[in-house]
Design a protein around this nucleic acid. Structure first.
Lengths: 140, 140
DNA sequence: GCTTGACCTCAAGTCGGCTTGAATTGGCAG
DNA sequence: CTGCCAATTCAAGCCGACTTGAGGTCAAGC
């Protein structure tokens, strides 16, 4: 009926330490204990999936917590979602041109990058742009 | 002729503490001192711009350092650049679809996200995707 | 009833990229 | 010569999301 932490770990793919951490942060809730051991409702797997999704979309654990009721229901603020969709799209667009620029730099025949006008334009753009937010799995 | 640190800070837009940190890490080099004060060649401003650009593109300071000769010249590994361009493009593509999905979730008429088949698909995708790498300025 | 070993707690550590703070130095104006 | 003030050094702190390690507990199997 209920799942213990190792079962949840196995099925969710998250290490037990992360599950404990999430519980401590108030993102998930165990329904009780068998001895020392936490017991979780099966529903927690859905919650965990939703958390992974939201993390993927770049939301912080603190933000996500606000969407989860004590009963484990998720009620996401739709306005925030839409705003975030805009942000992501925006970022994606800028990344596309960044990729173009990086690719150009890789192929540019000039021996010195600084003598390439394209590179100069990039420098201007990069000025005052700060890398900032954790973003999804960039393959390295 | 030479610039002291406050001048470099002003012209580059980076705080002096960052410049000292960059020097400590071997990304930039001061050409000498006037008393205690570091003196930089004007060229360092170019180097700093290039660093900002590379940071924007998601490279770490350690990676960037390897591209900078002790003389402050930048010789970027073109293969790595190209590889990185692929990665960025890849990420951008995935972010685009993520934005779509997030937007759908925002508008989805189902009261409960979990009963939306689209949302279910998303959950599957998000599984085992980890947010990982610091990425450029997502506007918050 | 005893051992086993998975789970527990709590504190501390990790990583990257900086920032902050206390105590010190030293060129320059008066 | 004195005092000012900005720049210096060095160690420590910060952020988020976890992980790690030491030492403790207890249900279950023999």
């Amino acid at each position: 009926m209920f799942l213990d932490i190792s079962e949840v770990a196995k099925q969710s793919g998250l290490p037990a330490s992360t599950l404990r951490y999430y519980e401590e942060k108030g993102l998930i809730h165990s329904i009780g204990r068998r001895g020392l051991r936490r017991l979780f409702e099966r529903q927690v797997l859905d919650t965990l999936d939703a958390i992974s999704l939201a993390r993927w979309a770049g939301f912080s654990l603190d933000e996500i917590r606000d969407w989860i009721s004590p009963e484990g229901e998720i009620r996401i603020d739709r306005q925030r979602l839409e705003a975030r969709a805009d942000e992501i799209e925006n970022l994606a667009t800028r990344l596309m041109s960044l990729a173009q620029m990086v690719r150009h730099t890789a192929h540019c025949p000039q021996a010195d990058h600084f003598s390439c006008p394209e590179f100069q334009r990039m420098l201007k753009v990069a000025r005052r742009r700060k890398p900032a937010r954790a973003m999804p799995e960039a393959p390295r």
